[in-house]
Each structure stands twice: as C-alpha cells, then as structure tokens.
Amino acid sequence: MAITVNDFELDGSPDTHSSVGQEGNEFVTKLSEEVRNGLHITAGTRDPNVSTVEAKALVEAWRSGKRSGTGSLDLEGLTARGRIKRLFG
C-alpha cells in the first residue's frame, strides 16, 4: 500500500533560511519529472515477505495508467508534514 506524493515543498521553518535549508530547496527544485512521478510513502505491505521498495513500481504503474488490480482512493485536501530520511533510486 502506498500513498502518492503529488506536490511537496520545504516547510517555512527557520532552518529553511540556513545553508541546510538552501541545500534542501536546491535538491527539491532539481528533482527530475521521473523521480517526482515515483514519489510515495510506503504505508504497508501484504505480508512481511513483500519488500517495501515494491511500492515504487506500484506507483509508477498506477501513474502510467496500468491500474489492473490496483485500487485507489482520492485523499483530496489532505496535507502532511514529514522529513525525508532515505531515498531509493
């Protein structure tokens, strides 16, 4: 189960104005469309034997219209605040 990320930005905290915040902003603006289309949060797996990185392939297939066997629920208006700790290529 994955939650797609359609839009994101740095928060307005004071760190945004530091060199770390500037580096973060530069990182975000340089993400390719391909990377942006794969952004997601893995919310769960069918069982412990399913790798969490499989959600990326699920999201990419869903975004490209290959939705066979894949359901979706629109979470319009939902916002969340989080921190990127790890990215997979």
Rank of each mutant, 00 (worst) to 15 (best):
T52N: 11
G82V: 01
S51E: 07
R83H: 08
A61S: 15
T70F: 15
T79L: 06
V59L: 13
E76P: 04
V59I: 15
L78D: 01
A80H: 02
L58G: 01
K85E: 13
L78V: 10
A57I: 08
G77Q: 05
L75I: 12
G65R: 10
T52H: 14
R81H: 03
S72F: 08
K56T: 15
E76M: 02
V53L: 08
V53I: 13
R86W: 10
R67V: 08
G65V: 08
L73M: 14
K66A: 10
K56E: 07
V53Q: 07
R81C: 09
A55C: 08
R63V: 07
L75S: 01
G65D: 13
V53N: 08
L73C: 07
S64M: 01
L58V: 11
G77H: 07
E60V: 15
G65H: 11
D74Q: 07
S51I: 04
A80E: 00
L73T: 14
W62V: 06
G82K: 02
S68R: 11
T52M: 06
I84T: 09
R86F: 08
S51V: 07
K85F: 12
E76G: 14
D74V: 04
G71T: 13
R83E: 09
S72T: 07
S51C: 05
T52R: 14
L75T: 13
G69V: 01
A80Q: 05
K56P: 11
S64L: 08
R67Y: 01
A57P: 00
R81F: 03
R67M: 03
L73E: 15
T70C: 09
R83V: 10
S64F: 03
D74M: 06
R63D: 10
K66E: 14
A57G: 13
G82R: 02
L78I: 07
K85G: 14
R81L: 04
E54K: 09
E76A: 11
R63K: 06
K85N: 15
A61K: 15
G65A: 05
L73R: 07
A55T: 14
T52G: 11
W62A: 13
T70E: 04
E54P: 04
R67N: 03
G69Q: 05
A61D: 15
K56F: 05
A61G: 07
A55W: 01
T52K: 12
A57W: 03
K56S: 14
K66Q: 14
R63E: 11
W62K: 00
L73W: 00
L73I: 12
E76W: 00
A57D: 09
A61F: 05
D74W: 00
S64P: 00
R67K: 11
V53Y: 06
E60D: 13
S64Y: 03
T52I: 10
K66L: 12
W62T: 08
R81E: 06
S51F: 00
L73D: 12
K56Q: 11
G71H: 12
V53E: 04
G71Q: 10
T52V: 12
T79I: 06
G77C: 09
R83Q: 13
R67T: 09
S64R: 13
G71S: 10
L75Q: 00
E60R: 08
T52C: 03
E60M: 14
A61T: 13
S72D: 13
